[in-house]
Design a protein around this nucleic acid. Structure first.
Lengths: 223, 223
DNA sequence: ACCTGAACACCGTTCAAGT
DNA sequence: ACCTGAACACCGTTCAAGT
């Protein structure tokens, strides 16, 4: 209890360890968004010179990949009771919802995820359990894999847009206003005009559920 | 025929016009990808100093938005004979395929599209005709709008991934190798192991069609 | 009106040198 | 082994001044 914090080797303990660095980077992400996350600012926050970061991350992209992997730690693979007994479509939906929430948990989380290609355990677990749900439901390998990819791509595409509409945080006139303006000004978009209330709605959860429902019901016709 | 090119006003004609600037920017995008497209390099290509670009585009983001709008010019709204007589699900699928191809027509096209929010005519036409197809099929306003958004989000998510796997162009070991390595090394991903051939397949058109089929068949159960 | 020149406040990355 | 200091080769953006 009174041991100095993390004194694993001899020599003086490094000021920089990858785990703390990734967590600090996520904190900076939440504060200022992806564009404000620079190697220099991260180094500052870690009390170190910028060049020192490169002993643990070869490039900024490597750092971002590690961040994406860390973000997916919040995805709960539904092997537990919550989804273990439910039917396959409910379990697949739960996985997709969990992915969306994990991405939403950090500012620009979807951008970080979409811009990297992690092959870490959290990422692979997500994919493995998703495909497992579908194979367990009787889908063949090709259908199970392609269906999981479709669900992930939809989820990322949706959340990317959801966070883009969210990130400006009160700078510009905000997307809905701009769209309403453009549509009404032109006057040549009857279907956009009719659906403007839905298109400018901020009920992103509802939107997400609708698309997710299409995918799972489409899958159901194949089962 | 012998008139000097584009002599519309008096005074000397500007060296910089927005249309040529956007086209040059797209050419630079195709050459080096999004990360290599800088305002300075674009200025160079236009034979001008970097600051001069700011008379026509307030920020780089504005330029990127104009590029996204230009990219969508290749999307053919299926009001013509190709899709005019087909049923609504075929027409909606044709629109989605057309969007994917337009994004694929430029390097990092999906990234440019996903990172911007154009309200130009090409963008609005795409959305209006998509929603129009669905309303014409009998869907109510809410369902038509949310279905079109789902299709667009899926298409963007898919194409983002498709181009990410494509862009490196032979630098790193390429995504499929890395994935195979990570999965086989861990040995704890039975479903990934079983579906590795599909997951590492490069038949992106097939993958896209599968997800698109899920969405349209899911929609069919609502019609 | 349109563009130049030059600056401001930054970037990611590398690498000899220190401790 | 781990980090500093300092540099290299860039960025986006602004703005007085020229023509």
């Amino acid at each position: 209890m009174t041991t100095p914090p993390t004194r694993t080797g001899r020599g003086r303990p490094p000021r920089l360890d990858p785990v703390r660095t990734i967590e600090t980077a996520l904190a900076l992400l939440d504060e200022g968004g992806l564009d404000a996350l620079t190697m220099r600012r991260l180094a500052d926050a870690m009390g170190v010179q910028a060049g020192a970061l490169y002993r643990y991350f070869a490039t900024k992209e490597d750092l971002l990949t590690a961040m994406a992997e860390r973000i997916l730690a919040q995805v709960s693979a539904p092997t537990a009771e919550e989804g273990g007994s439910a039917d396959w479509s409910a379990r697949l939906s739960a996985l997709a919802r969990s992915l969306r929430l994990a991405l939403l948990a950090h500012r620009d989380g979807a951008r970080v995820f979409a811009g990297t290609h992690s092959t870490g355990p959290n990422t692979l677990n997500l994919a493995d359990s998703g495909i497992g749900i579908l194979r367990g439901a009787g889908f063949d390998d090709a259908d199970a894999a392609r269906a999981l990819l479709a669900v992930v791509h939809y989820t990322v595409g949706h959340t990317l847009e959801e966070q883009a509409a969210l990130s400006p945080a009160g700078e510009a006139p905000a997307a809905p206003e701009v769209l309403r303006e453009a549509v009404t000004a032109a006057g040549t978009y009857p279907h956009l005009t009719a659906t403007l209330p839905i298109l400018t709605s901020q009920d992103h959860a509802d939107r997400f559920e609708f698309g997710l429902g299409l995918l799972t019901r489409g899958l159901l016709t194949r089962a």
